[in-house]
């Protein structure tokens, strides 16, 4: 009984039963396999996060975003007044989160690489690309850089999935992926 002291005081010398040894072996090997899968995906998989991050002042990040908007703006998104930018493929692109919007709207070309920079101007936000379901955490003061290759064209939403106050549910951004001309 597990609620009484072991009657055999030398309980650590008792032999193990076959089923226990087998199960421990199976579970241990499975743990190694799962560990190996994570490591291995860095070599064979296409979906790995970069480790590239910089500390940045939110205002400095905001200036970089504005510079991109000025250079690459092509139109406004519907009647929202939010600029749509079409940066050159292979370049650095920026998206910032703030209460309560993702700024600006990006228009990307299919199968092109972009270096996406993410940061927040105020609180933490969650970059949740739908319906892809790619989810990244966005911190104020940290600039996360990752290389993305949109491989399907279409209209994607960026939902905020880190609670950021009363207007959290209105924080939706957009990324358009268009076919190459």
């Amino acid at each position: 009984m597990a609620i009484f002291p072991p009657q055999n005081r030398l309980w650590w010398k008792e032999p193990l039963s076959g089923i226990e040894i087998t199960w421990i072996g199976v579970a241990f090997v499975w743990g190694l396999v799962m560990f190996g899968t994570m490591v291995g995906w860095h070599f064979v998989g296409k979906q790995n996060l970069s480790n590239e991050t910089y500390r940045i002042n939110p205002n400095a990040f905001g200036e970089k975003v504005e510079a991109m908007v000025e250079r690459y703006q092509v139109r406004e998104e519907g009647d929202t007044g939010i600029p749509v930018v079409h940066p050159a493929p292979g370049t650095d692109i920026y998206m910032l989160g703030r209460l309560w919007e993702w700024y600006p709207v990006l228009e990307l070309e299919k199968d092109q690489k972009y270096r996406l920079h993410l940061s927040s101007m105020d609180w933490q936000h969650g970059f949740s690309l739908q319906p892809q379901n790619i989810n990244l955490q966005v911190h104020p003061g940290y600039e996360m850089v990752l290389t993305i290759t949109p491989d399907k064209s279409g209209e994607y939403a960026v939902v905020c999935n880190e609670f950021c106050g009363i207007g959290h549910h209105t924080m939706v951004g957009k990324i358009h992926v268009i076919d190459n001309k």
């Binding site: 998104e77 519907g78 929202t80 939010i82 919007e101 709207v105 969650g126 949740s128 739908q130 319906p131 892809q132 379901n133 939403a157 939902v159 905020c160 999935n161 880190e162 609670f163 959290h168 549910h169 209105t170 924080m171 939706v172 951004g173 957009k174």
Partner: peptide, 24 residues
Amino acid sequence: GTLGVARRHWDMGFSDAAMSFDYP
């Protein structure tokens, strides 16, 4: 969650949002 619905989120219909998105 597998379909992408956010946690800690009041409205999966995104009412009042400037840009919207329809979950499946």
